[in-house]
Design a protein around this nucleic acid. Structure first.
Lengths: 234, 234
DNA sequence: TTAGTAAACTGAACACTGTTCACATAGACG
DNA sequence: CGTCTATGTGAACAGTGTTCAGTTTACTAA
């Protein structure tokens, strides 16, 4: 009677094998050099077979990004994420995020940078783990406010966005080879977090409205100005 | 005797036509959907002809990025870049950069984000205008230090990098559709600059060494951790 | 055991892509 | 005029994502 279950298990195993092959090819071959045919060869299926597991190549990337959020979620922290001091927790959170961009550059790129896989940008709200982690960060910032470490009235959501954007900016510079030879990306990353924290503590007036986090977190549908990337084939 | 000159002029005109066609296709068709064949059709040449003007498709992108730096260099400022107050000049510089990311997202992406055109990351030092503008920014920061607006001893180069990385991070979030529906990218961009400025003014100790700007500015060869993107064809 | 059936998988094709190369052609020079 | 060189072409090569008519496989019902 466990036949259906076993079938589903087998199917899930093949699905995982496809994702693993795709991930390994990302590492060794680089980003755009991974093709359906190469993945298929690695898992010893025909290219056409992959289309019964994923509707398109984009969806493989999408699933990999989902994997990435899981990886980040499970990543060990070098600092004290559970520290008593809420400011140290925030520092540790972003140190972990930068370390993640070092350890898993291809995942990081898919999760926070990439524009070539339309679904990732457009269906961002489907990454429930991303929403969860973002909520956690906002609550960490809120605890800083409650503890008087940030001025009363600081919009927690905006503050967390400023921190995240700054760190992603530094990580991106390193990922895209825009650092000068002597520049240390990690130092820059830690510095930018400290500087933004200090700036928030200064209590300057912010333009951004807090928007009190309407839907649990992010959501899609932000006009880009850039063409919504390539549809696979018209 | 002006034959050689006229020939060179003609050649340059075709080169420009190719770049214009490529740029226009970026706007209308999106990023990865522009092909050599489409560019060739638009300029009414055969695909093979383009290869006597550019050694590869990557080099067309590279030339477009060069164009981008020229565009940014010539962009009008909404704020007062020539203002007397050096802090206002910095704010205006980054407001202009963010506006540029709105007006020319594809150029911005090529210049500061893209990893899929290997030459742009790897030969960054060849963008002389980028070096020039960066030097200008560093000198603006230095003027703030000299005027006592930033603490004495602030490393101007590091400060300018922190500012730039933060703003690029916000611009990237908008470009890659990572903003929540209610979020205002422009407000975030202006806020992040103000917050980083305030943080720098707080005088916290920075980890990054100043490195006194060894070669005039940036330079290539920073280990990425990510595969150096796809070579066109092996 | 056998017939039927539904899912899984394949081979071949389609319409693309970047790039190369033997050939044609047009314009400048002696 | 012929020669020669630069410029441009058509066709091809090897690759891409994707689709689909069939075949194979594995399970179900008679």
């Amino acid at each position: 009677m466990g036949i259906k279950q076993r079938q589903e298990r087998d199917r899930e195993a093949v699905r995982r094998a496809i994702l693993d092959a795709a991930r390994e090819l990302f590492m060794s071959e680089g980003y755009g050099n991974v093709s359906i045919r190469k993945i298929a060869e690695r898992v010893e299926y025909s290219p056409a077979a992959l289309y019964s597991y994923f509707p398109s190549k984009d969806d493989i990337f999408f699933a990999l990004a989902e994997d990435g959020f899981q990886l980040l979620h499970d990543a060990p922290s070098r600092g004290a994420v559970d520290a008593c001091l809420p400011l140290e927790r925030i520092r540790a959170t972003f140190a972990r995020l930068y370390q993640f961009s070092l350890d898993h550059p291809e995942h990081f790129s898919l999760m926070f940078v990439d524009r070539t896989v339309p679904r990732i940008g457009q269906e961002y709200e489907r990454f429930t783990l991303a929403r969860q982690m973002k909520a956690q960060l906002v609550s960490q910032v809120q605890q800083c406010i409650d503890a008087g470490l940030f001025p009363h009235g600081t919009p927690a959501l905006v503050a967390s966005r400023l921190l995240a954007a700054s760190l992603v900016g530094v990580a991106l510079m390193r990922l895209s080879d825009r650092l000068a030879p002597g520049e240390n990306g990690e130092d820059l990353a830690l510095d930018v977090v400290d500087v933004v924290i200090a700036g928030l503590q200064s209590g300057i007036r912010l333009r951004s409205h807090s928007l009190t986090d309407p839907c649990p977190l992010e959501a899609p549908r932000a006009a880009t100005g850039l063409h919504p990337s390539e549809e696979p084939h018209p």
